[in-house]
Design a protein around this nucleic acid. Structure first.
Lengths: 217, 217
DNA sequence: GTTAGCATGTAAGGAGTTACATGATTTT
DNA sequence: AAAATCATGTAACTCCTTACATGCTAAC
């Protein structure tokens, strides 16, 4: 019963799968990957790397191997990590899983970020799971909102409305993605070569002209 | 240097300010209030109540005072809490503050939930602070996205695009609210009696017919 | 009368942050 | 040579969750 925050671990495995990296850089990529904010601290990252190295998922290759731009002799700083065979194995096994924890808030983003390396069936199962999860929430919130509506002031009401709208939007986003995946799958089953690369693209109903206001910075 | 999660404390103060309550009910209201998910556990709530009672912000009035529906004699369960004078004082002082922590993610929602009891100037300052905060994020993410765009696969790109869009939407929501507050303030300054109650309403550009798709469950 | 839900609490532990301590490299 | 930024790490502490332990009340 592995605790439910192998999230960080999975993210690290995934990034190191693309290319070896040292902690500092890893952190920046990590912060970008997940919606992008909530800067992960070194106090989290380094201990995690250490533990993963001990478990044999990654190894710290001394910087002597790959001399960085401005000649950095094999002194001692810059621990460049890379995946071991075990690490690769663990990564792909995790990517193949699609249990209920997969579509929880924190997990979902990371799993989605590695969809390009996830097989189509798993992708679909995760998207559908997430969609169901959000729809449940929506229903729950709607009902309790209906029960308490008249007792609330306008600001609280507006907050609730806005929260609801955000989740609704999220559900529609998932709907678009699911449609795309289904389309790609049907095309593949029919042997349509052109659909080999799923192209998540923009889900239906999301106009690219959307940031007209925001682009005026 | 009060730790930055008086969030829970503030929320409790606010709810008890409306009406005395026991922990179990408090928890339900609490979970509704903030976007509505991430159920707060008893393991958090009860110790917090205890600590607040010790600090003299709230008192546990024995259930004997308000006998619930089906006659629950003053046995021992149902600790109904209410604010003390100190608690009320602390609450209104906190509501009057508008420091930088105010517009951080977790704080903001709670502060907004109590806007009806916050004076107009503070409301505006918090909204503007939050807006600036989000705009900074947006800028930061946009730039690092632009730097890494070509190296990313389509799913990661879509995730980034979606994240960006969400924040943009949030900014527009705030813009609407700020406009409303400014309008209400100008009206009040001119002595316009009709604008006494700010009516946050729906910010411009947010159609109520929005959940047409979602209501088909 | 037994199951389900209301109600309160505690102990252990997970996950992450802040603050500190250190040193190398690059820029000014 | 000073300042900024890259880079790594540790220790203490915070906040919260899970799991446990307990007992009352309502419904079937």
């Amino acid at each position: 019963m592995r605790s439910r925050s192998d999230v960080l671990e999975l993210a690290i495995l995934g990034l190191l799968h693309e290319a070896p990296m040292h902690g500092y850089e890893l952190r920046k990529r990590l912060n970008l990957m997940l919606g992008s904010f909530r800067a992960l601290s070194y106090g989290s990252l380094y201990p995690c790397l250490k533990a993963m190295a001990q478990r044999g998922l990654i190894v710290a290759a001394d910087a002597s191997q790959t001399p960085p731009p401005h000649a950095l002799a094999g002194k001692r700083s810059r621990n460049v990590y890379e995946l071991t065979a075990d690490g690769k194995e663990h990564f792909s096994q995790t990517l193949a899983s699609s249990g209920p924890t997969t579509w929880e808030d924190e997990h979902f983003d990371v799993r989605f970020a590695f969809f390009a390396q996830t097989d189509a069936e798993t992708r679909l199962r995760i998207l559908e799971g997430r969609r169901t999860r959000l729809a449940e929430r929506l229903e729950h919130v709607r009902q309790s909102a209906a029960r308490t509506r008249d007792r609330l002031d306008e600001y609280t009401l507006e907050l609730q409305r806005h929260g609801l709208e955000q989740v609704e939007r999220e559900v529609r986003w998932l709907d678009g993605l699911i449609d795309n995946e289904r389309g790609a799958r049907r095309a593949t089953e029919r042997g349509d070569r052109r659909a080999q690369n799923p192209e998540p693209g923009r889900p239906a109903g999301t106009e690219p002209a959307d940031d007209a206001d925001a682009s005026q910075h």
